[in-house]
Amino acid sequence: MKLQIPLVCLHLYFSCCEAQVDQSPQSLVTGEGEVSTLFCAFTSKYQTFHWYQQLPGRGLTYLLAVSPQENATEQRFVGQPLGDGKRSSLHITDSQLGDSGSYLCAVAAQ
């Protein structure tokens, strides 16, 4: 029997200059041991995407920062810039039950 792990993605909005940060999917259910992938998009070019994790009943935990030119890795979490300079992905390798929670991104804009 496959264990299902809900990974909830919340939306954050960047208020300056009508720019907006958008995450997808809005929710994700995956199996234990699988790779889970989340995406973050910004309406203009960015300097850095910052990824955070919030587990149930806990505050935000900083995971990693993704620059436009290189991947970032922190244990089982891998952040990648995507080709258009406006998006990033977060991969959770070998997903575990303890990964269930909310994942958020914030942007340091140019």
Rank of each mutant, 00 (worst) to 15 (best):
K2C: 08
K2P: 15
L3N: 12
L3M: 10
L3E: 11
I5L: 12
I5G: 02
P6K: 14
C9G: 11
L10F: 02
H11R: 13
Y13I: 08
Y13R: 14
C16M: 09
C17Y: 05
C17Q: 08
C17R: 12
E18A: 13
D22T: 14
Q23S: 14
S24K: 13
S24A: 15
S24H: 09
P25I: 12
S27G: 08
V29A: 10
V29F: 08
V29C: 08
G31V: 06
E34F: 10
E34Q: 15
V35Y: 00
V35H: 01
T37S: 12
T37K: 15
L38N: 01
L38C: 04
F39R: 15
F39W: 10
F39E: 07
C40L: 11
A41L: 09
A41Q: 14
S44M: 10
K45W: 03
K45C: 04
T48I: 11
F49W: 09
W51Y: 05
W51N: 02
Y52H: 12
Q53C: 07
Q53W: 04
Q54N: 02
L55D: 03
G59K: 09
T61N: 08
Y62T: 06
L63V: 09
L64V: 12
A65L: 00
V66P: 03
S67P: 08
T73D: 01
E74G: 02
F77N: 09
V78W: 00
Q80G: 00
P81F: 00
G83C: 00
K86G: 06
R87I: 04
S89W: 02
L90S: 01
H91W: 06
T93H: 14
T93C: 08
T93M: 13
S95E: 00
L97C: 03
G98V: 14
G98L: 15
Y103F: 11
L104Q: 11
C105R: 06
V107T: 06
